[in-house]
Design a protein around this nucleic acid. Structure first.
Lengths: 342, 342
DNA sequence: CTCTGTCATTCAATCGATTTGGCACCACAA
DNA sequence: TTGTGGTGCCAAATCGATTGAATGACAGAG
């Protein structure tokens, strides 16, 4: 079933059918209704490939996510990002093409993605500092939006969350509670978000004129095991609080502290980052910084669609606020337990 | 840059370029090298839309996931399924198109998905008993594979995990440990997997000639809150063990038991299903049934590609084994804690 | 009755690849 | 030299839609 047959059945020509499909104004109402009726009856759906070819638009958005080989793929983050993107696309009748890029296929995939005819634009969620795909996309003419800010000077749009400020708030909170030896377990420092969170930690200390002790700063790999290992290294230095750059690692750190018989929050206060679902279930419940990932995804998709419709528009940078969610692990006694549940 | 230009630059015709692209044998080696060289130099990538149109193949697989409005979207399950599918597709150079179907867009999306030219085939992960998409796909000529078995009698391929047997094993384990009043919190009973797990529970009791008490069976909605509510209803009936149909709900049940001051596993033994990451982190660590979701995803993708290459092949049904992972919540003392970590 | 302008519709070209049928060429045997 | 078979390549048609230019119908003005 194709336009020609629909045209014949409804007594018009193929281009008229096409006009009906695309809501062009130059079709008499009666004709439009007639054609629509035939399409209903025959259950006609236009061929997507032919449409893409002729119109030069696929109505598909790409999502590229870096999938590290060794570090654990961050499921919770990824799912929510995807939910946000998907909602926005569903609402505007776009499809989503997904690439989880494995290093061994990197080059081939970059070629595919930047080649024409597959997608109209791309959202990339790769937080590496120097990303070959970002470079490739800039070289090509494909519109793209990045999740997470990129190095300064790059002329491209992104959606980010306030990593620095979120971390700063968390550490400020610990300082206000009277903690003095505040340690941090950072994320992998080749990721911009890790750097930002570390800088937030430093900013809070500096702001309150607290001493900065490099022995209290350890780089983790982002995984639970990484947090476990890092916390073991920190333990001898007797921190009375730890700001961990993500919840996954906080879980590992928490295990070390429990096994070492440290009481939380009395002996050591703990704060994570991300507010993953399990943060509510740990013992004690984990204080953490919540980032609006789903919202970021939806926003990125909308920005991308706008950029596709209007490729000449200048780069936009949006930074969404992060929110400190106070639970018991930081040593702050809440009036009611309810206030920290979701 | 298109085939014609490449053809001109390398002194051949467009069809020859096409042959080189598609590894047809009827091209002299020297010619092939010459064309390949030109493609390298010009950094040529064939247009995907044109290719799809001409060849009638998109090299894209669709993944359709039902996204319920109220129940919580199962992130861990979904992510792993996707990782499996993605790996298999990357390996064979296919792209993945993703639809997270919201009820309000259901009809429109079904039309899009079954329309031609977008994907070569579809994997659907919807465990509802009667699914409109399954029906629509069967009516259309699009090859598809279902994740999770469908009602008997339907002529279609699927990949499933041993829900019944996994549940049966879990309950058998509880019986062997001497538990007598074993309750269950089932998943939503409009999902086949929930029915299978419930039947596994019943099978174990029947097999051991243990009494079946309908007061000890409660239907949950699959979410943590659902588990919490269900466990509250069960508590007055004094179960000495609970088999919960998924880890999410087990988490809720665990919270009720903790709040009620029940000791685990001494007073009540608990077993979940899925082996989500957090199962290792609960207090006590959760005994659960692990399902090979990632493997199921990869397998489904491979089966789908095979089905696309050979549409006439008969339906295949594959059921992957589930594995009981014993931790402390079921009351079984392990020799070493290590053996239950991953 | 002719001319002009508007609006709806059709014609023909186009998008960029694949596919089919056939031609030219070569090697080899008769 | 002629016939035969196979290889390597090309011209033209095809896939199913969109797009801009051209055409037709029709109404109102002169």
């Amino acid at each position: 079933m194709n336009v020609k047959q629909i045209a014949k059945l409804s007594g018009v020509s193929a281009p008229t059918v096409s006009r009906v499909l695309n809501n062009h104004p130059d079709v008499r109402e009666a004709t439009r209704q007639r054609v629509l009726a035939v399409m209903q009856q025959t259950n006609y759906q236009p061929n997507a490939a032919a449409r893409s070819l002729a119109a030069g638009q696929t109505n598909v958005l790409g999502l590229v996510v870096w999938r590290e080989p060794d570090t654990i793929f961050n499921e919770a983050y990824f799912s929510r990002l995807l939910l946000g993107i998907s909602s926005a696309c569903n609402a505007r009748d776009r499809a989503v093409m997904l690439w989880l890029v494995e290093p061994k296929h990197e080059q081939r995939m970059i070629q595919k993605i930047t080649a024409g005819g597959l997608v109209d634009g791309v959202i990339i969620s790769t937080m590496r500092l120097a990303d070959p795909l970002t470079a490739a996309l800039q070289a090509s003419r494909i519109p793209f939006i990045q999740i997470g800010r990129h190095a300064a000077g790059v002329q491209a749009s992104y959606v980010d969350v306030e990593n620095l400020n979120g971390a700063r708030e968390a550490v400020m909170h610990l300082l206000r509670l009277g903690r003095r030896r505040i340690a941090t377990i950072t994320g992998p420092l080749n990721m911009i978000s890790s750097l930002d969170r570390r800088d937030g930690y430093l900013a809070a200390l500096t702001e309150r004129k607290a001493p900065i002790n490099s022995a209290l700063m350890i780089e983790g790999d982002g995984s639970e095991t990484g947090g476990y290992l890092a916390m073991q290294l920190l333990l001898p230095h007797q921190p009375d609080a730890v700001f961990v750059a993500n919840d996954q690692m906080a879980l590992g750190a928490l295990r070390v502290l429990t096994e070492a018989g440290r009481r939380m929050p009395e002996d050591v206060a703990l704060i994570g980052f991300d507010d993953l679902p399990f943060a509510l279930q740990t013992t004690p419940p984990l204080t953490t910084v919540r980032q609006p990932i789903m919202q970021a995804g939806a926003l990125a998709a909308e920005m991308l669609m706008e950029l596709i419709d209007n490729p000449a528009s200048p780069p936009k940078r949006v930074v969404l606020p992060a929110e400190l969610v106070i639970r018991h692990s930081c040593g702050f006694r809440l009036q009611t337990a309810r206030s920290s549940t979701r």
